[in-house]
Simulated scan of single mutants.
Amino acid sequence: MKGKILLLAMFALSFQVFSQVKTEKVNPDQIPQRIQKEGMRPISLTIPDEEVVLRELEESVLGANSENESFDFGRFFPFELNFEIIESLCKDGKCFKEIEVEYGGMNTLGFVFDQLDLSKNAKFYLINDEAGYIQGPITRESVNVPRGFISGLMPGDRLRLLLEEPENEQNTSIIRINEASFGIFDFFNVSKYSSRLNSSNPCWGFGCSASCNINIACSSSLDLESKAVALVLIKNPSNNTYSIRGTGALINNGYQDRKFLFITASHIYNSFEWDNNSQFVFHYKSLQCSPTTNGSLTIYVQGATNIIPTGQGHTDLKLVELKVGSGGNPLFASNPVSFLG
Protein backbone atom coordinates (compact mmCIF):
# COMPACT_ATOMS: atom_id res chain seq x y z
CA MET A 1 0.00 0.00 0.00
CA LYS A 2 2.80 2.41 0.91
CA GLY A 3 4.44 1.67 -2.43
CA LYS A 4 1.26 2.60 -4.29
CA ILE A 5 0.93 5.87 -2.36
CA LEU A 6 4.56 6.75 -3.10
CA LEU A 7 4.08 5.95 -6.79
CA LEU A 8 0.99 8.17 -6.97
CA ALA A 9 2.84 11.01 -5.26
CA MET A 10 5.74 10.75 -7.70
CA PHE A 11 3.31 10.65 -10.62
CA ALA A 12 1.53 13.80 -9.39
CA LEU A 13 4.83 15.60 -8.85
CA SER A 14 6.11 14.76 -12.33
CA PHE A 15 2.99 16.30 -13.87
CA GLN A 16 3.08 19.57 -11.99
CA VAL A 17 2.51 22.54 -14.27
CA PHE A 18 4.95 25.40 -13.80
CA SER A 19 6.88 27.87 -15.91
CA GLN A 20 9.60 30.33 -14.98
CA VAL A 21 11.92 31.93 -17.52
CA LYS A 22 14.10 35.02 -17.56
CA THR A 23 14.87 37.62 -20.20
CA GLU A 24 18.29 39.14 -19.58
CA LYS A 25 20.60 41.74 -21.10
CA VAL A 26 24.15 40.38 -21.07
CA ASN A 27 27.63 41.14 -22.30
CA PRO A 28 28.39 40.00 -25.88
CA ASP A 29 30.65 37.14 -24.74
CA GLN A 30 27.73 35.63 -22.77
CA ILE A 31 25.48 35.24 -25.81
CA PRO A 32 25.51 31.69 -27.25
CA GLN A 33 27.48 31.65 -30.48
CA ARG A 34 25.85 31.17 -33.85
CA ILE A 35 26.04 27.60 -35.09
CA GLN A 36 25.59 28.49 -38.74
CA LYS A 37 28.46 30.81 -39.57
CA GLU A 38 27.05 31.67 -42.96
CA GLY A 39 24.21 34.19 -43.10
CA MET A 40 20.97 32.56 -42.00
CA ARG A 41 17.82 33.44 -43.90
CA PRO A 42 15.14 34.23 -41.30
CA ILE A 43 11.50 33.24 -41.45
CA SER A 44 9.54 36.44 -42.06
CA LEU A 45 6.23 36.91 -40.25
CA THR A 46 3.21 38.98 -41.21
CA ILE A 47 -0.51 39.12 -40.43
CA PRO A 48 -3.65 39.91 -42.43
CA ASP A 49 -4.93 43.51 -42.19
CA GLU A 50 -1.67 44.55 -40.57
CA GLU A 51 -2.23 48.30 -40.82
CA VAL A 52 -5.70 48.07 -39.27
CA VAL A 53 -4.39 45.95 -36.38
CA LEU A 54 -1.44 48.27 -35.71
CA ARG A 55 -3.67 51.35 -35.63
CA GLU A 56 -5.97 49.63 -33.15
CA LEU A 57 -3.01 48.81 -30.91
CA GLU A 58 -1.71 52.38 -31.12
CA GLU A 59 -5.10 53.75 -30.08
CA SER A 60 -5.13 51.34 -27.13
CA VAL A 61 -1.61 52.31 -25.98
CA LEU A 62 -2.21 56.05 -26.40
CA GLY A 63 -5.51 55.75 -24.55
CA ALA A 64 -3.69 54.10 -21.65
CA ASN A 65 -1.41 57.11 -21.37
CA SER A 66 -4.47 59.22 -20.63
CA GLU A 67 -7.30 57.56 -18.73
CA ASN A 68 -7.33 53.77 -19.19
CA GLU A 69 -5.91 51.47 -16.55
CA SER A 70 -5.01 48.65 -18.93
CA PHE A 71 -4.36 48.31 -22.63
CA ASP A 72 -3.52 45.98 -25.49
CA PHE A 73 0.07 46.25 -26.67
CA GLY A 74 0.32 43.26 -29.01
CA ARG A 75 -1.36 40.40 -30.83
CA PHE A 76 -1.01 36.64 -31.12
CA PHE A 77 -1.42 34.96 -34.51
CA PRO A 78 -1.00 31.46 -36.01
CA PHE A 79 2.57 30.40 -36.76
CA GLU A 80 3.60 26.76 -37.14
CA LEU A 81 7.18 25.64 -36.52
CA ASN A 82 8.29 22.11 -35.60
CA PHE A 83 11.94 21.75 -34.58
CA GLU A 84 11.83 18.16 -35.84
CA ILE A 85 12.38 19.45 -39.38
CA ILE A 86 15.49 21.49 -38.46
CA GLU A 87 18.80 19.78 -39.18
CA SER A 88 21.09 19.08 -36.21
CA LEU A 89 24.71 20.17 -36.25
CA CYS A 90 26.92 18.25 -33.79
CA LYS A 91 30.37 19.04 -32.42
CA ASP A 92 32.31 18.38 -29.21
CA GLY A 93 29.65 16.05 -27.84
CA LYS A 94 26.79 18.53 -28.28
CA CYS A 95 24.12 18.86 -30.97
CA PHE A 96 22.44 22.12 -31.98
CA LYS A 97 19.36 23.22 -33.88
CA GLU A 98 19.07 26.88 -34.86
CA ILE A 99 16.65 29.10 -36.74
CA GLU A 100 15.82 32.82 -36.97
CA VAL A 101 12.41 34.52 -37.08
CA GLU A 102 11.69 38.19 -37.84
CA TYR A 103 8.77 40.60 -37.95
CA GLY A 104 10.20 43.89 -39.15
CA GLY A 105 9.45 47.04 -37.19
CA MET A 106 8.14 45.45 -33.97
CA ASN A 107 9.37 46.28 -30.46
CA THR A 108 8.79 42.78 -29.02
CA LEU A 109 8.43 39.23 -30.31
CA GLY A 110 7.40 36.01 -28.58
CA PHE A 111 5.95 32.55 -29.13
CA VAL A 112 3.34 30.11 -27.85
CA PHE A 113 4.45 26.48 -27.78
CA ASP A 114 1.97 23.76 -28.58
CA GLN A 115 4.55 21.46 -26.97
CA LEU A 116 7.85 22.17 -25.22
CA ASP A 117 9.16 18.85 -23.90
CA LEU A 118 12.92 19.16 -23.42
CA SER A 119 15.25 16.24 -22.83
CA LYS A 120 16.94 15.84 -19.43
CA ASN A 121 20.00 17.98 -20.18
CA ALA A 122 18.72 20.13 -23.07
CA LYS A 123 18.95 23.93 -23.06
CA PHE A 124 16.75 26.16 -25.18
CA TYR A 125 17.33 29.88 -25.86
CA LEU A 126 15.62 32.83 -27.49
CA ILE A 127 18.30 35.34 -28.53
CA ASN A 128 18.35 38.92 -29.79
CA ASP A 129 21.90 39.26 -31.11
CA GLU A 130 21.52 42.93 -32.05
CA ALA A 131 20.36 44.21 -28.63
CA GLY A 132 22.30 41.67 -26.55
CA TYR A 133 19.36 39.91 -24.84
CA ILE A 134 18.83 36.23 -24.16
CA GLN A 135 15.92 34.29 -22.71
CA GLY A 136 17.11 31.11 -21.08
CA PRO A 137 18.53 28.68 -20.69
CA ILE A 138 15.04 27.19 -20.63
CA THR A 139 15.29 23.69 -19.18
CA ARG A 140 13.01 20.86 -18.12
CA GLU A 141 13.42 22.07 -14.53
CA SER A 142 12.24 25.62 -15.30
CA VAL A 143 9.32 24.89 -17.67
CA ASN A 144 6.81 22.08 -17.33
CA VAL A 145 3.74 23.18 -19.27
CA PRO A 146 2.32 20.29 -21.33
CA ARG A 147 0.59 22.65 -23.75
CA GLY A 148 0.47 26.39 -24.30
CA PHE A 149 3.73 27.66 -22.81
CA ILE A 150 3.97 31.42 -23.50
CA SER A 151 7.52 32.68 -23.82
CA GLY A 152 8.46 35.85 -21.95
CA LEU A 153 8.75 39.05 -23.95
CA MET A 154 11.89 39.52 -26.04
CA PRO A 155 13.02 42.87 -27.49
CA GLY A 156 13.27 43.76 -31.15
CA ASP A 157 12.01 42.39 -34.44
CA ARG A 158 14.42 39.49 -35.04
CA LEU A 159 15.08 36.49 -32.79
CA ARG A 160 17.35 33.47 -33.00
CA LEU A 161 15.99 30.22 -31.53
CA LEU A 162 18.69 27.80 -30.37
CA LEU A 163 18.37 24.25 -28.99
CA GLU A 164 21.40 22.58 -27.40
CA GLU A 165 21.34 18.86 -26.52
CA PRO A 166 24.02 16.36 -25.47
CA GLU A 167 24.87 14.08 -28.40
CA ASN A 168 23.40 11.07 -26.60
CA GLU A 169 20.06 12.95 -26.30
CA GLN A 170 20.03 14.16 -29.90
CA ASN A 171 16.55 14.64 -31.39
CA THR A 172 14.76 13.65 -28.17
CA SER A 173 13.41 17.12 -27.31
CA ILE A 174 10.01 18.03 -28.76
CA ILE A 175 9.54 21.71 -29.62
CA ARG A 176 6.45 22.74 -31.55
CA ILE A 177 5.36 26.37 -31.90
CA ASN A 178 1.79 27.12 -32.95
CA GLU A 179 1.53 30.90 -32.36
CA ALA A 180 3.75 33.96 -32.48
CA SER A 181 3.24 37.32 -30.79
CA PHE A 182 4.37 40.84 -31.59
CA GLY A 183 4.13 44.05 -29.61
CA ILE A 184 4.47 47.79 -30.25
CA PHE A 185 4.95 48.79 -26.59
CA ASP A 186 8.66 49.46 -26.09
CA PHE A 187 9.46 47.57 -22.88
CA PHE A 188 13.16 47.40 -23.77
CA ASN A 189 13.76 50.83 -25.34
CA VAL A 190 14.77 49.39 -28.73
CA SER A 191 12.68 51.90 -30.74
CA LYS A 192 11.87 49.58 -33.65
CA TYR A 193 8.25 50.57 -34.13
CA SER A 194 7.18 53.61 -36.18
CA SER A 195 3.81 55.21 -35.40
CA ARG A 196 0.99 55.03 -37.95
CA LEU A 197 -1.09 57.73 -36.24
CA ASN A 198 1.53 60.49 -36.08
CA SER A 199 0.39 61.42 -32.59
CA SER A 200 1.73 64.74 -31.29
CA ASN A 201 2.74 63.09 -27.99
CA PRO A 202 3.42 59.40 -28.58
CA CYS A 203 4.67 57.31 -25.68
CA TRP A 204 5.46 53.77 -26.67
CA GLY A 205 6.71 52.27 -23.44
CA PHE A 206 9.96 53.32 -21.86
CA GLY A 207 9.00 55.71 -19.05
CA CYS A 208 5.27 55.53 -19.91
CA SER A 209 2.62 54.45 -17.43
CA ALA A 210 -1.09 53.96 -17.01
CA SER A 211 -2.69 54.53 -13.62
CA CYS A 212 -2.26 50.86 -12.55
CA ASN A 213 1.30 50.51 -13.86
CA ILE A 214 4.55 51.70 -12.34
CA ASN A 215 6.77 53.58 -14.78
CA ILE A 216 9.11 51.30 -16.68
CA ALA A 217 12.60 52.52 -15.82
CA CYS A 218 16.01 51.28 -14.77
CA SER A 219 16.28 50.45 -11.07
CA SER A 220 19.81 49.18 -10.50
CA SER A 221 19.31 48.70 -6.76
CA LEU A 222 15.98 46.89 -6.49
CA ASP A 223 14.65 47.35 -2.97
CA LEU A 224 12.61 44.94 -0.85
CA GLU A 225 9.27 46.28 -2.05
CA SER A 226 10.06 46.41 -5.76
CA LYS A 227 11.32 42.81 -5.72
CA ALA A 228 7.83 41.72 -4.65
CA VAL A 229 5.99 43.63 -7.38
CA ALA A 230 5.10 42.06 -10.72
CA LEU A 231 3.48 43.38 -13.88
CA VAL A 232 0.47 41.29 -14.97
CA LEU A 233 0.20 40.41 -18.67
CA ILE A 234 -2.79 38.59 -20.17
CA LYS A 235 -3.19 36.58 -23.36
CA ASN A 236 -6.86 36.88 -24.24
CA PRO A 237 -7.82 33.79 -26.31
CA SER A 238 -11.15 35.31 -27.40
CA ASN A 239 -9.55 38.03 -29.55
CA ASN A 240 -5.82 37.10 -29.53
CA THR A 241 -4.75 40.32 -27.80
CA TYR A 242 -1.72 40.67 -25.53
CA SER A 243 -2.42 43.20 -22.78
CA ILE A 244 -0.94 44.89 -19.73
CA ARG A 245 -3.54 44.58 -16.99
CA GLY A 246 -1.83 46.16 -13.96
CA THR A 247 0.46 45.15 -11.10
CA GLY A 248 0.37 43.16 -7.86
CA ALA A 249 2.74 41.84 -5.22
CA LEU A 250 3.84 38.65 -3.46
CA ILE A 251 2.69 38.50 0.15
CA ASN A 252 3.65 36.34 3.10
CA ASN A 253 1.13 34.28 5.05
CA GLY A 254 0.90 33.41 8.73
CA TYR A 255 3.17 30.39 8.29
CA GLN A 256 5.91 32.58 6.78
CA ASP A 257 6.63 29.66 4.39
CA ARG A 258 7.14 31.77 1.27
CA LYS A 259 4.28 30.22 -0.59
CA PHE A 260 3.93 32.17 -3.83
CA LEU A 261 0.75 34.05 -2.93
CA PHE A 262 0.07 37.06 -5.14
CA ILE A 263 -2.41 39.84 -4.38
CA THR A 264 -3.76 42.16 -7.06
CA ALA A 265 -6.97 43.93 -8.10
CA SER A 266 -10.00 41.92 -9.20
CA HIS A 267 -10.94 44.42 -11.88
CA ILE A 268 -7.78 43.87 -13.90
CA TYR A 269 -8.98 40.40 -14.85
CA ASN A 270 -12.54 41.20 -15.94
CA SER A 271 -13.92 38.12 -17.72
CA PHE A 272 -10.58 36.81 -19.00
CA GLU A 273 -9.71 33.12 -18.72
CA TRP A 274 -6.62 34.00 -16.71
CA ASP A 275 -5.41 30.69 -15.27
CA ASN A 276 -2.76 29.65 -17.82
CA ASN A 277 -3.09 32.77 -19.98
CA SER A 278 -1.61 35.12 -17.36
CA GLN A 279 2.05 36.07 -16.95
CA PHE A 280 3.59 37.70 -13.89
CA VAL A 281 6.71 39.73 -14.69
CA PHE A 282 9.12 40.24 -11.77
CA HIS A 283 12.11 42.63 -11.80
CA TYR A 284 10.55 44.30 -14.84
CA LYS A 285 11.90 47.69 -13.74
CA SER A 286 15.51 46.57 -14.25
CA LEU A 287 15.33 46.11 -18.04
CA GLN A 288 17.69 48.97 -18.86
CA CYS A 289 20.36 48.54 -16.19
CA SER A 290 23.97 48.06 -17.24
CA PRO A 291 24.61 44.58 -18.68
CA THR A 292 25.04 42.15 -15.80
CA THR A 293 23.96 38.61 -15.09
CA ASN A 294 22.69 39.76 -11.67
CA GLY A 295 20.71 42.89 -12.46
CA SER A 296 19.31 43.56 -15.90
CA LEU A 297 16.74 40.81 -16.20
CA THR A 298 13.04 40.08 -15.87
CA ILE A 299 11.47 36.86 -14.57
CA TYR A 300 8.24 35.50 -16.08
CA VAL A 301 5.89 33.15 -14.24
CA GLN A 302 3.00 31.71 -16.24
CA GLY A 303 -0.29 30.74 -14.64
CA ALA A 304 -1.86 30.86 -11.20
CA THR A 305 -4.44 29.05 -9.08
CA ASN A 306 -7.36 31.04 -7.71
CA ILE A 307 -7.44 31.40 -3.91
CA ILE A 308 -10.10 34.11 -3.46
CA PRO A 309 -12.63 34.28 -6.32
CA THR A 310 -13.07 37.58 -8.13
CA GLY A 311 -15.39 39.90 -6.25
CA GLN A 312 -15.48 37.73 -3.12
CA GLY A 313 -16.61 39.83 -0.15
CA HIS A 314 -17.42 42.78 -2.43
CA THR A 315 -13.81 43.93 -2.54
CA ASP A 316 -11.53 44.76 -5.45
CA LEU A 317 -8.90 42.29 -4.26
CA LYS A 318 -7.86 39.04 -5.87
CA LEU A 319 -5.55 36.45 -4.27
CA VAL A 320 -3.90 33.74 -6.38
CA GLU A 321 -1.07 31.25 -5.94
CA LEU A 322 1.51 31.36 -8.72
CA LYS A 323 2.46 28.12 -10.46
CA VAL A 324 6.08 27.99 -9.40
CA GLY A 325 6.38 24.23 -8.78
CA SER A 326 7.22 22.13 -5.77
CA GLY A 327 9.98 23.59 -3.60
CA GLY A 328 10.25 26.80 -5.62
CA ASN A 329 12.58 27.00 -8.59
CA PRO A 330 16.34 27.43 -9.16
CA LEU A 331 15.61 30.63 -11.08
CA PHE A 332 14.22 32.31 -7.97
CA ALA A 333 17.04 30.95 -5.81
CA SER A 334 19.62 32.83 -7.88
CA ASN A 335 17.39 35.85 -8.60
CA PRO A 336 15.38 36.28 -5.40
CA VAL A 337 12.03 37.97 -5.03
CA SER A 338 10.54 39.49 -1.88
CA PHE A 339 7.43 38.62 0.11
CA LEU A 340 5.68 41.56 1.77
CA GLY A 341 4.19 41.26 5.24
Rank of each mutant, 00 (worst) to 15 (best):
S142K: 05
N239I: 00
E51G: 06
N252Y: 08
K259C: 09
V112P: 12
G325L: 05
K4L: 14
E51R: 14
A217Y: 04
I184R: 01
I299S: 03
L162P: 12
T172N: 08
C218Q: 14
R55W: 10
S278H: 03
E169D: 11
S219D: 00
Q279L: 07
T305M: 00
G207K: 02
K318R: 09
E102G: 02
K4D: 11
S238W: 07
Q302M: 01
S60R: 08
T23F: 11
I43T: 05
S334E: 04
R140N: 04
L109S: 01
N68Y: 12
A333H: 01
E38A: 14
F83C: 09
P330A: 10
L89F: 14
A122C: 08
R158Q: 03
I85Q: 15
L163C: 05
Y103E: 11
N253H: 13
K259S: 13
M1T: 15
G303D: 06
L118V: 13
R41P: 00
A180K: 10
S119I: 12
P291M: 10
D129H: 11
E225M: 00
Q312S: 14
N171R: 13
T315C: 08
S195T: 05
G156W: 01
G341W: 05
M1V: 13
I47M: 15
K25V: 04
A228H: 04
G136F: 02
L287D: 06
I307Y: 04
N65I: 11
S271A: 15
K22V: 00
K120I: 14
P146M: 01
F15D: 12
S66H: 06
G254F: 04
N276M: 13
P202H: 00
E141S: 15
M10Y: 10
A230F: 00
Q30G: 02
A122P: 09
